[in-house]
Every structure is written in C-alpha cells, then in structure tokens.
Computed example of a mutant assay.
Amino acid sequence: MIPADTLVQLQDIFRAHGMTDPALQDCLMQALKLRDYDRDQLIIRAGERPTHFYVILSGVARYYYLSPEGRQWNKTFFREGQMIGSLSAHLKQQPCTYSIAAVERCRLASLPLAILSQQGERFPQLQQMQDLVTRQIMLRNEDREALLLTSNSEQRYQWLMEHEAWLLDRVPQYQLASYLGMDPVSFSRVKRRQDR
C-alpha cells in the first residue's frame, strides 16, 4: 500500500511529466514498487541492461562513468521529482554505459521499462513523457558539454552557482569537482575564491 502523502507526490510528479490521464496514473501506481537505497548504493550498474526506470521521491542520485583505472567521472545529478534510468540503453536495447548511484539516502518509485511498450499504445502520454524526458536530457547534456569545452574553472563554478546551486549543499565536493571537469584541489581553490 502506498502511503497517502507518497501517492499525492507521485501524482504531482506524473502530472509534471505530462501524464495527467487518471487511468494511466492508476496503471503506473499498480506497477510501481517503492525502494530505498542507502548512500552510495548502486541503482543501475554499468554493463547491465536496465529493466526499470525510477521516480525520485527523496534524495539525490548521480550518473557516473568508471575509467579502467577505477576513477569516477560524474555525468549528472538528479533530485526529488525527477525521473532517472538509462533511456538510451532502453531505446538501443543495449547495456547501460554508466552507473547510477544514490548520493544520499534515496526513496525511489521503481517502474518496469516494459510498461512503456506494453501500455504505450493505450496511453499516448507515456510516449509524450518519454519525448519530454529525452528533450530535457538532450538540452542539459548540450549545455554541460559547451560548459566543459568552452569555459574555464571559474566560469564552470559560476555556472553551477547560477543553474544548479542546490548541488553545493547535497553533493560532496570531490563529486562536484569531477562533474565540472576539475580535480578536487582546483575545485576547492575556485570555490574559496568565488565564495569570498
């Protein structure tokens, strides 16, 4: 049984993603499972074919790549109200190329990816949601790519302050450094200068 406050939160998130049809929301509610993840626990491991996508009810999650030497490169972060998973792996029917892990303790609503194909014809809003999420991810990735390729460290930190300041309170500095293409020492130095 889904707690009443969680039910309301899920309905709000579904509506925010264009899924307003009550029958579709009922279908999603019946298919989802609530899952808790501890800090640093893997949600999806690189190399696996994902079977679910998730709605973040509480907490922060990160996408990251792992180098052959074991170094982690943070790709992006998501928080409450956002959907996570590897849409590209699902669309290409291939293993995920990055891992997704909890940055802080997370409560997620887990939904099977199969629902997108099984119910897509019945509920066109599922395809619209997929299109919306794809568009958001594409625009976000393009902005970050431009930032990493054309900006210096100070400009990257300033961008973070202007566009994703919430990360500063919830994500460890070494992970933010990786996200902005810096080493932790450089990040700390830039942060000190900018915060004066």
Rank of each mutant, 00 (worst) to 15 (best):
D183K: 00
A23I: 10
P22S: 06
I137M: 11
A61R: 05
R105P: 13
P68I: 05
R140F: 07
A101D: 07
Q11G: 10
Q136L: 15
A23P: 12
E69I: 07
M129Q: 11
D131S: 15
L148D: 02
R140W: 05
A4L: 15
M19N: 06
A31K: 02
V190P: 02
Q72T: 08
Q118C: 10
I84L: 10
S151R: 04
Q118T: 08
S117L: 07
N141D: 15
R105A: 13
L167K: 01
V171D: 00
T134P: 13
Q93S: 12
L57Y: 05
E104L: 09
G59S: 00
M129G: 10
S117E: 13
I137G: 09
D36P: 12
I43P: 11
W166V: 00
R189D: 05
H163M: 03
L7E: 15
S88G: 10
S178F: 00
I115C: 05
S67A: 08
M29T: 13
L87C: 10
Q41I: 06
M29Q: 14
L24R: 02
T20L: 08
R45Q: 15
L180Y: 01
R39E: 12
D36L: 13
L34S: 02
L57S: 02
R193N: 11
Q72I: 06
K92A: 13
Q25N: 03
I13W: 01
L139T: 14
E104R: 10
L147I: 02
P68G: 07
Q93M: 09
K92C: 12
G120A: 00
P112Q: 02
Q158F: 01
R79T: 10
H163N: 04
M1C: 11
Q194K: 08
R140A: 15
A31T: 01
F53Y: 11
S58T: 10
Q136T: 14
S110L: 03
D131K: 11
L126D: 06
Y37K: 15
V171Q: 01
I2C: 08
L160S: 05
R189E: 03
C96A: 13
R71T: 12
K191L: 06
Q127W: 07
W73C: 14
P95T: 04
A109F: 06
I43Q: 06
R15V: 11
P68S: 09
C27I: 06
P112K: 00
A146T: 14
Y64C: 07
E164Y: 03
L126A: 04
V60F: 01
F53K: 12
S188I: 04
W73Q: 15
Y64P: 12
A114H: 06
A89S: 07
D38A: 14
F14C: 09
L111Y: 00
V185Q: 08
H52E: 09
P172A: 04
V133L: 11
Q9S: 15
V171N: 04
T134H: 09
L132D: 15
M129C: 13
D195K: 09
L111F: 00
R107Y: 05
V8D: 15
L168N: 01
G59N: 05
K92F: 08
H17E: 15
K33Q: 12
R122T: 11
E164K: 02
A109I: 05
L167A: 00
Y179T: 00
L87M: 12
E80P: 10
Y64L: 10
R79E: 07
